[in-house]
Amino acid sequence: MSITLLSPSAANHLASAAVDRRVIGPYSTLATAVEAAEKESFSAAILDVRLGLSDTTVSVASLLAGRHIPFLFYTGQTLPPSMQTHLPDAAVLAKPAPPAELVASVSRLLDRPRRP
């Protein structure tokens, strides 16, 4: 399985850590991220809160949650109140984080039991 992501900095961290999963992405537009969240098969996802200046990834996170795909927000921002309300259990890792911390966070996501 693979890990999808929307954060270019996460891609660099995971590649340098030689994570034993194929990394797909990053997706830089909301449309491509939504399409991937709807159709792609992957084990986990790393999202930033925003894509561009105004788009949030709440729709992507909602699709992932509906498909029982674990995800975390790797972001330099706090989750907006609407996202906190809609996704109260979302994992958040603040940027910048050491690569080892990002890899450990992804490992925890992958270790979670996955619902069908």
Rank of each mutant, 00 (worst) to 15 (best):
M83Q: 00
L47G: 04
L47T: 02
A94M: 12
L30K: 13
K95W: 04
E101W: 06
S28L: 03
L30S: 09
A104I: 14
R22H: 09
A31L: 09
I24D: 05
H86K: 06
A91P: 10
A31V: 09
L87C: 08
V23G: 05
G76P: 02
A36H: 06
A94Y: 11
R114G: 10
I46A: 04
E35H: 10
L79Q: 02
A104W: 13
L5G: 09
P96M: 06
L109E: 00
P98W: 07
P96R: 05
V58C: 07
A15M: 10
V58R: 15
H13I: 14
S7V: 15
I46N: 06
M83L: 05
A91Q: 13
R112F: 08
M83K: 02
H13E: 14
S7F: 14
L87E: 00
L51V: 06
K95Q: 04
A65E: 11
D55R: 13
R108D: 13
A94K: 14
A15Y: 15
L102N: 10
S43K: 15
K95P: 05
Y74V: 02
V49R: 12
D89M: 11
L72A: 01
F42G: 01
Y74I: 05
S105L: 01
D111M: 14
H13P: 08
E40G: 08
P116T: 12
F42L: 02
T75W: 07
A10D: 12
A65R: 13
T75S: 01
T78Q: 00
V60A: 04
P26E: 11
A10W: 11
L79K: 07
N12C: 14
V60I: 00
S43P: 11
K39Y: 05
A10P: 09
L79T: 03
E101P: 12
S9H: 00
D20Y: 11
S59W: 11
I3A: 02
E40I: 06
L14P: 03
E40T: 01
L102F: 08
T4K: 13
D55S: 08
S9K: 06
G76A: 04
T78K: 04
A61C: 01
D111N: 13
V23S: 02
L47H: 07
S43G: 11
I24H: 06
H68Q: 15
I24S: 03
S82Y: 12
A90H: 10
S9L: 03
L63N: 06
P70E: 00
F73W: 00
S107A: 15
D55N: 02
L64W: 10
N12K: 13
L64R: 05
T29K: 11
L64G: 04
A37Y: 04
A45P: 07
V19K: 15
L72K: 02
